[in-house]
Design a protein around this nucleic acid. Structure first.
Lengths: 203, 203
DNA sequence: TTCTTTTTGTACCATATCGCAAAGAAATCC
DNA sequence: GGATTTCTTTGCGATATGGTACAAAAAGAA
């Protein structure tokens, strides 16, 4: 006997929430929260405003959903990379390369990091965006610190795991900023190499 | 014979343009460009909108004027500090301390750096803001590079002046971000110390 | 087939936003 | 003192913005 999967009563959604969140995020990523209008988002997602409200709440809730999902995914990806076996230098090279790849993507131009590029600006008057960005920075610090503690012998002489983590996070932040300002990929690669040199010492 | 200073015909301005620009900047600094309304700025400056238009043009021109003045002053201050004689480590300690001091100020909360905190978000769709922020980052890089070239023997072993400059600029950027997110002064001081450790090597 | 539930779209609401016209105010010039 | 110039204010225009009410559409249940 074939049991059809039961679905709740009522008209079915005409969209996939994850897909819509991705498109909305793209608008926020390009324009920042305040400059992104619901009309912009409606246009990008192909949904009308009441549908967006029904699915996500209001504009702010939609933004927070996009930030939250981004943080979760970015941290998971970063954890996977710093968790790799192998020489620290090689791990960092791969990590920064992947990060740069993500930061130079964009339909209308380079956008850097969604969280650093938009939530930091909101932070002064938006406690939720601030909390999320703060947690994200703490995540970055913690992931680096753990890996560096594990690879302490591969750090530059005199550099503690703690200090090295801060230098590495600083590198991610400057890459986010520079990418959003349009610096070319090769220039970003040089910034990454400089950070790696400072963290791991001379090759 | 006493010669009174001749002034142009017409009603005199009731405000000082520099003072007004400072107040307008403060609003933009807290809220970012897009979220700062002309009403907010009018309230902060005590002027009505037509007066702001008469003095500065439009909202965007006012913002650009604030960015431009900020860059000029920040770069001059930074040049004065990195130009100081003395041990590189001590120079960097003083510089980062001064920078942190500026970044933790704010009437409604910490705001970090006006340019990094607001113009970077605008950069994707505002070519003028992008150009100014880009020039500012290049200024930071160049000032550090010059000083480090001059003090090459005081850098960590194997670290070039170029690379060290990028690490130092990265530190300014992460401080700007962290300060805007509300990290306490002591935490920012530790980030600065980490960067100095990476740039100058073990003490 | 009708009722109930959920979603979508149209039309709108209440307010906010940037910018401007015109009149009055404050100065210089003749 | 009147004309001219420049600045400030009031009041407004045109539009944008975030959010909502309600009717129609699309589904399940009886």
């Amino acid at each position: 006997m074939v049991q059809k999967e039961a679905r709740a009563r009522g008209r079915p959604r005409s969209f996939d929430a994850d897909e819509v969140l991705d498109k909305a995020r793209s608008v926020f990523w390009n324009l920042g929260y305040a400059a992104a209008s619901l009309d912009d988002i409606a246009l990008a997602t192909g949904l009308k405003r009441p549908s967006l409200y029904a699915a996500f709440g209001d504009k702010h809730a939609l933004y927070m959903a996009a930030l939250t999902r981004t943080r979760t995914r970015a941290v998971a990806a970063m954890a996977a990379m710093v968790g790799r076996e192998g020489a620290l230098r090689a791990v960092l090279v791969d990590l920064f390369e992947a990060v740069i790849g993500a930061y130079v993507e964009g339909e209308i131009g380079q956008r850097g990091c969604f969280i650093i590029g938009t939530a930091v600006t909101q932070a002064v008057e938006d406690p939720q965006a601030r909390a999320l960005a703060t947690a994200f920075v703490a995540d970055e610090d913690a992931l680096f610190r753990e890996r560096f503690a594990h690879s302490a012998s591969e750090l530059a002489p005199g550099l503690t795991a703690d200090a090295a983590a801060m230098v590495a996070t600083a590198a991610l932040h400057t890459l986010a900023i520079r990418a959003r300002l349009g610096e070319p990929r090769e220039a970003l690669a040089q910034v990454a190499a400089a950070a790696i040199g400072a963290i791991c010492g001379p090759a």
